[in-house]
Nucleic acid binder design. Sequence first.
DNA 1: TACGCTTCATTGATATGTCAACTACTTCAA
DNA 2: TTGAAGTAGTTGACATATCAATGAAGCGTA
Lengths: 147, 147
Amino acid sequence: MADRRLKDVIFYSLESASKAYRRFAQARLSAAGIDITIDQWLVLKTIHESADITLQQVGAAVFKDFASVTRIVQLLERKGLLCRKPHPSDGRRSELMLTKSGESVVRTVEPIAQGNRRQALDGIDAEEVARLRAVLKRITENCDAPR
Amino acid sequence: MADRRLKDVIFYSLESASKAYRRFAQARLSAAGIDITIDQWLVLKTIHESADITLQQVGAAVFKDFASVTRIVQLLERKGLLCRKPHPSDGRRSELMLTKSGESVVRTVEPIAQGNRRQALDGIDAEEVARLRAVLKRITENCDAPR
DNA sequence: TACGCTTCATTGATATGTCAACTACTTCAA
DNA sequence: TTGAAGTAGTTGACATATCAATGAAGCGTA
């Protein structure tokens, strides 16, 4: 069998690509003078996209544990990009909304993120990306399947 | 453009699959009563594979920061799976080697790891895996390219 | 041989991942 | 209407990721 050694294991390539993209994107953000992490960006963007979302839903959307989301939201609040108000109809939740400054970060980062993706996918055509997406979906499902 | 929303971004699928597999594999290890983390396993296996390796090389092999490797090695030492001796010819390094108990963990985990991979790749044929590997490699290179 | 430069490794600070315990609020049914 | 079960969120403990600073050992060259 060919995958005796770690470097031949496909999940190695997966980690490798995932981490490489993460570092790359983070470097670009920092270079643009934007003081947030990739994960903070993902959370910010998710909240921006969906009105009246719960932290749990944010977590599900970004594949993060709820505990992590709680902390990231606290950081975003501290940085003045996000604010929370008590939710009008459910006392357990809070209403999440971007501040002016949060909105402005989203507008700044969006084109950077697009450029990052374009560069990371250089030389890979749309069909290949679609195939990649399908395989990754299958892997995710295989792993998440209850047993 | 279709990837306005986060969930349409391919790197999302990448994170998703990577995290799903990680959680899946970790659960299998724990279920087998093996008290190490996935990352500790990767480091242990790497050292097992390569005689006389430096921590830097270990880090490169598992896509980890050297600082992380240092800490993981400390944990593996504390668990009695790994031991370090002063390196005979280079005073900066130490010689890394598995203990009896470390060897035994490797023998126990190896078949589990193979089973995990088999299950995670269920329904994905070898050709597709090869294609996946190639695309991931390209992405990694695109991101690591100096600029 | 002494100096600077590089390499290997460690440590500190902060952010995140994961699991588990816990609080507070809601809902629903008896 | 009250008590049990469920839901949203927080926090603690530990492991890892990343960056920066540091220490310690080797190496090259004047």
